[in-house]
């Protein structure tokens, strides 16, 4: 018995040694910075140089119409973007699941290559497509659509289009992961028993894909509310989102406690979405 205990204790020590560097990185690079944000968001320096607890940084956010508008724009855009990725991503994942391996690989590459390119470059591409004298403007010009209506830069529509491309891969890959777990025989059973193609999709495939669609939506929504590069380049300064407003507080007005308070709100919103996502992801 003692020997078994010894082996078990050794194995435990070995696991701990393997995990130690990872835990160190998490503490230094993750818990420590996030902790600093949380502390900064609730502290205020008094006149004699001491620090005291305050909710004023959060208060500033909720009383100012400007920041409430920014928050509302961020949520509204995230909602539309999530919806768009569901509409395009779910059928795409289903097609991939049924496609011939060569076609499937081609689609996978089409989805993953943009995912692996820097978000700065993808957004740059959209600037060339949507901007003044861009691809879209020159495509619609022959149809008499010219001037401002042909340029989607600095519009919310432009942000939605660019962000949908940036985030679509997350939806496709999440839903595909779930669809791969559904046996083809279920669909075939439905078809042989006389159900039509669309009926099987609606009654068999779609309900089974719901966990994938929900977790895909949660992750797209979470990434969307915190994204910075694409909305700030496509939307410009006139259409700020939360992330842009935080950046402005840090580099523009140097109000770090306020930046910390906004970051805390963003983090809290993300956690609200991520916790159900983690639950869903764990249940196979």
């Amino acid at each position: 018995m003692a020997a078994v205990d010894w082996v078990r204790a050794q194995a435990r020590k070995e696991s701990l040694a393997l995990l130690a560097p990872g835990i160190l990185v998490l503490v230094i690079a993750f818990l420590f910075p996030v902790g600093t944000i949380l502390i900064t968001s609730v502290l205020e320096r008094t006149e004699d140089g001491a620090f005291e607890l305050t909710a004023s940084h959060f208060g500033k956010f909720f009383v100012d119409d400007y920041y409430l508008k920014v928050a509302w724009r961020t949520l509204r855009l995230a909602l539309v973007i999530t919806l768009a990725t569901v509409i395009f991503g779910v059928p795409l994942a289903y097609i991939m699941r049924r496609a011939h391996p060569a076609l499937r690989f081609a689609i996978l590459l089409t989805v993953i290559l943009p995912l692996m390119t820097s978000v700065v470059i993808r957004t740059f591409g959209w600037l060339v497509v949507l901007g003044n004298g861009g691809l879209l403007a020159s495509l619609v010009a022959p149809f008499g659509v010219t001037g401002r209506s042909a340029v989607l830069m600095h519009t919310e529509t432009g942000i939605v289009i660019a962000m949908t491309q940036v985030l679509l891969p997350f939806m496709v890959l999440t839903v595909l992961g779930v669809l791969q777990g559904i046996g083809r025989d279920l669909e075939e059973a439905g078809r042989t028993m006389g159900a039509g193609f669309w009926q099987v999709l609606r009654v068999v495939v779609l309900p089974l894909a719901v966990p994938g669609i929900v977790s895909g939506s949660l992750i797209v929504f979470a990434l969307s509310i915190s994204s910075f590069i694409t909305p700030s380049l496509v939307g410009g300064v006139r259409l700020p989102v939360m992330a842009g407003s935080i950046y402005q507080s840090i580099g523009g007005s140097f109000d770090w406690p306020f930046a910390a308070a906004q970051s805390t709100l963003l983090l809290a919103a993300t956690l609200l979405l991520i916790i159900p996502y983690a639950r869903l992801a764990r249940t196979p």
């Binding site: 690079a29 944000i37 979470a222 992330a243 840090i250 910390a260 970051s263």
Partner: peptide, 20 residues
Amino acid sequence: LFLSPLVLPTLIFGIGLLMA
């Protein structure tokens, strides 16, 4: 815990590191 940085906003790490 170890995979959580994949889903948390990168922005937060950037701001936190800057402040820390």
